[in-house]
Every structure is written in structure tokens, then in C-alpha cells.
């Protein structure tokens, strides 16, 4: 699958990455090349093979419904690039 500039822009938008205009062509080439490698999986006969999401055949363990976490809000807010009045701040969210 060869990606063109539009594809690269669309993927970058989904991933919320900004691209320099000059980068796009190079990136399209690199990504297309990589996809070429990945497409080797097409050669495999996987008819009737169940997808494998986990290396071990285990099932989910459940935890008891108990409050075990005490939150030190100030410690967390101290990590935030911008906060005020106990809130994390971001540029205005428009609904």
C-alpha cells in the first residue's frame, strides 16, 4: 500500500501529530516502505486461524468493589502543565 500526502495528513490528524509541510513526502515514502514489509503477512494462509490478542490463555481476574485509592489531588495537579481551582486547564473546549 503506497501512501500519498493526503493519507499521511489523514493519519497524522487521527494521531494528533503535526507535520511540517516538508516532511510529508519523506514520511509518505518511509511509511509506504514499512507497509510493504508488513504486507508480507498477506502471504500467510490464516484460514480458520483464530486471532490471538494475548500470549497467554488466561481470563480476566476481578477485583472486589472497594474504595482503595485515596487521591492526593495536589500531587497530581503539581504535574500538570496548567491547573487552577483544582482543575486541569486546556484551551477552551467547544461543544
Amino acid at each position: 500500500m503506497a501512501l500519498d500526502a493526503d493519507d499521511v495528513h489523514a493519519i497524522a490528524h487521527l494521531a494528533r501529530l503535526a507535520l511540517d509541510a516538508g516532511q510529508v513526502g519523506v514520511l509518505a515514502g518511509e511509511l509506504s516502505q514499512t507497509l510493504g514489509l508488513l504486507e508480507q503477512i498477506n502471504a500467510a494462509d490464516t484460514a480458520g486461524v483464530a486471532p490471538m490478542a494475548h500470549p497467554l490463555d488466561m481470563t480476566q481476574r476481578l477485583r472486589a468493589d472497594e474504595v482503595t485509592e485515596q487521591v492526593d489531588r495536589e500531587a497530581f495537579l503539581a504535574q500538570a502543565p496548567a491547573s487552577e481551582a483544582g482543575l486541569f486547564l486546556v484551551p477552551r473546549v467547544l461543544d
Binding site: 481551582a85 483544582g86 486541569f88 486547564l89 486546556v90 484551551p91 477552551r92 473546549v93 461543544d95
Partner: peptide, 14 residues
């Protein structure tokens, strides 16, 4: 997201 103005920004309560 809380939209009352924090200098034109939104506040996030998680």
C-alpha cells in the same frame, strides 16, 4: 469539561 472561563480556558474535572 467545565466551561466557566478560566482566562478563556476550560477546566477539566476527572
Amino acid at each position: 469539561s467545565l466551561h466557566e472561563s478560566f482566562h478563556g480556558q476550560s477546566g477539566i474535572d476527572l
